[in-house]
Design a protein around this nucleic acid. Structure first.
Length: 310
DNA sequence: GGCCAGGTTCGCT
DNA sequence: AGCGAACATGGC
């Protein structure tokens, strides 16, 4: 199979396995992100055309280097630089952890986290739209229920690209989900409520009434204001997007149930903190709370420290 | 079968 | 503004 490959040097310390693991929530796949056998793969769209990137590590945490392979639009001009940009965004290779690590010194919660997972960067979603749809799918319901919905939605509406007999899927485009209609989405195990939210957002984006990608240029405050006007988006979702889809430094979903629980477990061996208490406690971590969020969730999900499941 | 789960909206004080 | 209820999925 024809392809082009190149190297990408992340800012050290950088742990590829941990970061790609966090991107896939420490499963083989999450959404359209795949991480198995030490290789991170994902379908990308460039000017409406699909391409597959495969990323693996050929360095170590202190002198990291990634090997990136592109199939699909490898012969086109600037394909490599586009792929490099996208991979850097997705796998957070551009992030400088130094100030966060400085803050974590002597912090009873962050210290052990950083020590256990040095070089974990913050993975990001392929687009703000993708992050928003995934967040809404994940609202309230159990992780397993959300996974079923994600898989069905992507299998049914995601653009397909076959390579060496394997079919890869990209994330559904706004027009794909808008075209599905609320009824169509409901057949994919979405509740009527989620279907309405997701259809409404997809339709607005497809019709250019809503510019989610443009949020990247707005201040945190303006992002908050604009997103909260969208039906189906609350505070939790905004903070989640600040961390995962907008690359901001200080996002922190203080109302997150799991977060409140885990902090309660660490700080007073038991009862969860209230969202308000969680927010107050988190102020000491500003302005690096996106890192804190990522490290806490990574610890919970990877079973590195804490048991996330009761 | 009932209860909970990585929230949000809507309707009540 | 602050609190409670409905919403409906998979899993124990």
């Amino acid at each position: 199979m024809k392809h082009v490959s190149f190297h990408l040097k992340p800012l050290p310390p950088y742990d590829f396995s941990l970061t790609a693991g966090a991107a896939t929530y420490f499963q083989n796949r999450y959404g359209v992100d795949i991480f198995e056998g030490g290789v991170y793969r994902r379908l990308l769209e460039r000017e409406g055309r699909l391409g597959l990137v495969s990323v693996s590590s050929i360095g170590d945490v202190e002198s990291p280097c990634l090997k990136v392979r592109v199939i699909g639009w490898e012969t086109e001009r600037h394909a490599s630089s586009y792929a490099a940009e996208q991979v850097a965004w997705l796998l957070g290779t551009d992030q400088d952890l130094t100030p966060f690590y400085h803050l974590s010194q002597g912090d009873p919660i962050l210290g052990p986290l950083v020590e256990a997972m040095p070089g974990l960067h913050i993975p990001r979603t392929g687009s703000v739209y993708e992050g928003l749809i995934l967040a809404i799918l994940g609202q309230q319901i159990s992780a397993n229920a959300a996974r079923v919905m994600r898989r069905l939605l992507i299998e049914k509406y995601g653009p397909a690209f076959e390579i060496d007999g394997v079919t890869y899927r990209g994330f559904p485009r706004p027009e794909d989900l808008a075209g599905a209609g609320v009824e169509g989405l409901c057949t994919q195990k979405l509740s009527a409520r989620k279907a309405q939210y997701i259809w409404g957002i997809s339709e607005a984006v497809a019709a250019s009434r809503l510019d989610l990608e443009g949020l990247k240029n707005d201040s945190d405050e303006l992002v908050m204001k604009k997103l909260l006007e969208i039906r189906g988006v609350g505070l939790w979702t905004v903070h989640w997007l600040l961390v995962r889809s907008l690359g901001r430094q200080d996002g922190f979903p203080h109302s997150d149930l799991a977060l409140c629980r885990i902090l309660g477990q660490i700080l007073r061996r038991g009862s969860p903190l209230s969202p308000h208490e969680t927010l107050e406690y988190s102020r000491r971590w500003s302005p690096y709370r996106s890192c804190v969020t990522t490290y806490l969730f990574a610890a919970m999900r990877s079973g590195h420290f804490y048991r996330s499941t009761h």
